[in-house]
Every structure is written in structure tokens, then in C-alpha cells.
Design a protein around this nucleic acid. Structure first.
Lengths: 125, 125
DNA sequence: CCGTATCCAATCAGATACTG
DNA sequence: CAGTATCTGATTGGATACGG
């Protein structure tokens, strides 16, 4: 498909929805972190570093709800819970990596454009 | 690059930032709509349909700031302002299309997973 | 260890009214 | 036509404390 063919309104809505869904503060970070294999709750938490317990829980619940990760509880003591990407979740890694690639390639250019724009506008204040 | 190699924390942050940036309610919709060529303000507005004037303005400003669209004012009366994707913006269409493709392929599956999850949980309410 | 509940500040987005 | 300004409700996300 050529990039010129993708503007069917209904489809764009769908894309917008998905992007809003995975575009929250933590979802992608969690998904790509889980990309390296199953992980326990706190393991995941430490890997991400700055996420609060609440947000990690909420994010994981959302991902589970959407069928992107599985949650496995081991009835041991202390309790252990593993999270793992489903096939659907792993499948998402591809497109996300593409976007990540774009971000890495052009991140600096965006920063420059921002500095430029802000310089032209808020410069006199 | 294989999908297993993309979890360098710093890079993931970057991806997360970009995704939050373009993951707001309207940005992607505007970008893909502009994908078919330059458009005037109200033309864009009608094409999207449900967006408010305020949000379209804010979204376009953001995109302009990031160097993803250009804004061209024709000093005519009535005034005419054209918006057009920059090369950077057009370059973004590719990854976004990939994500859109994923969304279209798996949207139904996600809906099903949601119904299933909600049925298992909120079923008794 | 793995969550849930509550409170709270910040941001977002819609509606409306007004301007060049 | 193409914005800007202001007000308001909704949503988000962090901190903290507590429960299984």
C-alpha cells in the first residue's frame, strides 16, 4: 500500500483510537520492556524505573484487558505474578519499533524545530 | 533490526515521548488527513468532522512547532491559510500506516478480548 | 510481593463568544 | 475565513496509606 492511500476517514478514526490507547504515558514502555520476555511485577517496575505502582497496575490491567499481555499468578508465598506478551502483543512490537525508529532518526530534528519555533515566538519575552 | 533488540531504556523513553506527542486525540488524524495534500483550515476541519476549532488550531500549532507541517498565509481577503506536511511529516506517514495496519488487522480481536475480560470481571454487576 | 483505595494537582478538551 | 480568549467539566497521573 502506498502512503497516499490511507486516509479513509473511518480507518483513520480507528488508528486514532489505537494510538490514543497505546499513546498513554506508560503502555509502550511496558510493552517493549516485556518484549524481552516474561517478567514479574516488581522486576518490570525496576526495569522501567520511574513508574508508580499504581500506574504500572493500571497499565498492565489495560493491556490484559485488550489481550496484549497475560497475567499468571503463582499461588506461592510470597506471591508471584508473571506478565508476558501475547502473540497480539508481540505483533505490536513491529509497528512500534518502526515508530521508534522514526523517533530515533528524527528526534534531534524535532528538538531543533522546536527550539527554532520557540525562538521565533516567545523570543521577545 | 530484530524486534528483540529494541529495549534500550533510553530509546524506549524516546519512543514513549514521541508516542505521547502524536498519541493525543487529534494529531494523527490531522497528519493522515494532510497526507493527501495541502489543505486550508476549514477544509481540514470539515474533513475531520468532529474536531473543534480550538483543538484544530492547537493541534496544528503543535505540529508546526515540531516541524511536521508548514503554515502558509496568503494575504488575501478573505484570508487563506494552507497547511502542508513537511518532509518530516510525510516521513511519519509510513510508521503511522504500519500502526494503522496493525490496528485494522487486530481491531476486532482487541474488541473481543475486551468483551471477554469485561464479561469475566464486571459480569456480576 | 502484589496489589487496591483515596486524595489531589495538573492537564486536556469542548463550548461559547469575540476579533482582524 | 481563520483564528484567540475564557470558562468549565472530564480525565490523567503522582503520592500515600493500607490489605491479602
Amino acid at each position: 500500500m502506498s502512503v497516499g492511500d490511507i486516509h479513509v476517514p473511518a480507518d483513520c478514526r480507528r488508528v486514532g483510537e489505537i494510538l490514543q490507547r497505546i499513546g498513554d504515558k506508560w503502555t509502550v514502555l511496558v510493552v517493549v520492556t516485556l518484549g524481552s520476555g516474561p517478567m514479574r511485577f516488581n522486576e518490570l517496575r525496576r526495569a522501567i524505573g520511574s513508574i508508580s505502582q499504581r500506574m504500572l497496575t493500571l497499565t498492565l490491567r489495560g493491556l490484559e484487558r485488550d489481550g496484549l499481555v497475560t497475567r499468571t499468578v503463582f499461588p506461592t508465598v510470597p506471591p508471584r505474578v508473571d506478565y508476558e506478551l501475547t502473540e497480539l502483543g508481540r505483533d505490536l512490537l513491529g509497528p512500534v519499533a518502526a515508530l521508534g525508529d522514526w523517533a530515533r532518526r528524527h528526534g534531534e530534528r524535532i528538538d531543533a524545530a522546536r527550539r527554532d519555533f520557540d525562538g521565533r515566538c516567545g523570543g521577545s519575552t
